[in-house]
């Protein structure tokens, strides 16, 4: 499906672009820690340690005013003392309000974000691409219907539609056994991983229209190509033409869109978990919502670290998206491809 020319463009664009290389490095890093989380994380991300709560990240010393009251000779005396909290090398990114290790939580949060981002995108593409191809290929009523429906769904902001659907359907999640822990490795790590099922379905439902629109546009321009006409003249049936000739030639812009969608869905997932509409408590957005309560008392890292993690992941994916777009630019390549 990928021609030599496309491959050459990708390679030369990659060689000349620092940003493309940075993007690949960032995404590989996030994918690596997400997959091997039980080995990479220094602690179990759910283990609480109240004696070690609110510890700052390495290099930061936090001073805090603590007020205690005690009874002295029948009178209440309030004593305010300044407490210095030093970082602990065991918790490089500090700990949250319950003493859970932030680095480990950030690492496990990568799993949630990536799984929702990738599965949500795959779901949206699986629904959207066939519908778009069929609408663009046959035109007429199917096409009109699809475009009107697309207009209507675009009128709902994806975040609003997503929280409305989750509000109506409830938030179901599935606990999946962690394969590494099940195989006997890293026994101190969580044995199961919570997959936010409803969230994945909802982000797919909310985003399929983008794939349908782009697939439709491609099918519209491809249906009148000589080779498609030739295939039709040779008696190939429509299903075969769409799958064998139209789809392969429409795949480039779909891949570019898919990349951008993974980033968009990661941001959407974090918004949903921030608002409490996820099904998991091990996610960057959820940690930011927890950390929000500590902002006024100065423990910025509890909300800060997961936010930086989101930025790293999304910047990486967007850089790859830019690289693919520059290398595969559908505008320039036109009908080329296979």
């Amino acid at each position: 499906m990928v021609s030599d020319r496309v491959r050459r463009n990708l390679a030369s664009e990659f060689r000349s672009s620092v940003l493309a290389k940075l993007g690949v490095v960032l995404v590989l890093l996030v994918v690596f820690v997400a997959i091997f989380a039980p080995f990479v994380a220094p602690h179990n991300p759910t283990t609480q340690d109240l004696d070690n709560a609110e510890r700052p990240p390495l290099g930061i010393v936090q001073t805090e005013e603590r007020t205690t009251s005690e009874m002295v000779d029948g009178e209440v005396q309030t004593v305010t003392e300044t407490v210095t909290i030093r970082p602990d090398a065991a918790h490089p990114l500090g700990t949250d309000g319950l003493g859970r290790d932030m680095l480990s939580r950030v690492i496990y949060g990568a799993r949630t974000s990536l799984i929702v981002g990738v599965l949500g995108t795959v779901l949206a593409a699986t629904v959207g691409v066939p519908i778009g191809l069929i609408a663009g290929y046959y035109r007429g009523r199917i096409d009109d219907g699809l475009m009107r429906f697309a207009d209507v769904s675009l009128a709902f902001p994806s975040l609003v539609l997503a929280i409305a659907l989750i509000g109506l359907w409830g938030r179901a999640s599935v606990a999946v056994p962690d394969p590494f822990v099940a195989a006997g490795f890293a026994q101190e790590m969580p044995a199961t991983f919570v997959l936010p099922g409803t969230v994945i379905v909802v982000v797919g439902v909310v985003n399929w229209v983008w794939f349908a629109r782009i697939a439709r546009g491609e099918a519209l321009s491809l249906r009148d190509q000589e080779y498609v006409k030739a295939a039709r003249a040779l008696g190939a049936d429509d299903g075969r033409i769409i799958a064998g000739h139209v789809l392969p030639n429409a795949i480039t812009p779909i891949i570019v869109l898919g990349t951008v969608q993974v980033a968009a869905i990661i941001l959407l997932e974090s918004s949903l978990s921030f608002l409490g509409f996820s099904g998991t408590t091990l996610s960057w957005g959820f940690d930011i919502s927890q950390g929000r309560d500590y902002v006024s008392s100065g423990q910025w890292w509890i909300a800060g670290m997961p936010g930086l993690a989101i930025m790293v992941a999304v910047i990486g994916i967007n850089l790859i998206g830019d690289w693919l777009r520059d290398a595969l630019d559908p505008g320039i390549q036109g009908e080329g491809g296979a």
Binding site: L267, S271, F274, I288, V295, S296, G307, I310, V314, I315
Partner: peptide, 22 residues
């Protein structure tokens, strides 16, 4: 602009509150 399209706005809001308000 790269950082801007990649930053969750709710997180940015919290960080702005932290620095410029608190």
């Amino acid at each position: 602009s790269l950082a801007g399209i990649s930053t969750p706005n709710f997180w940015l809001g919290i960080m702005l509150i932290l620095v410029l308000a608190v």
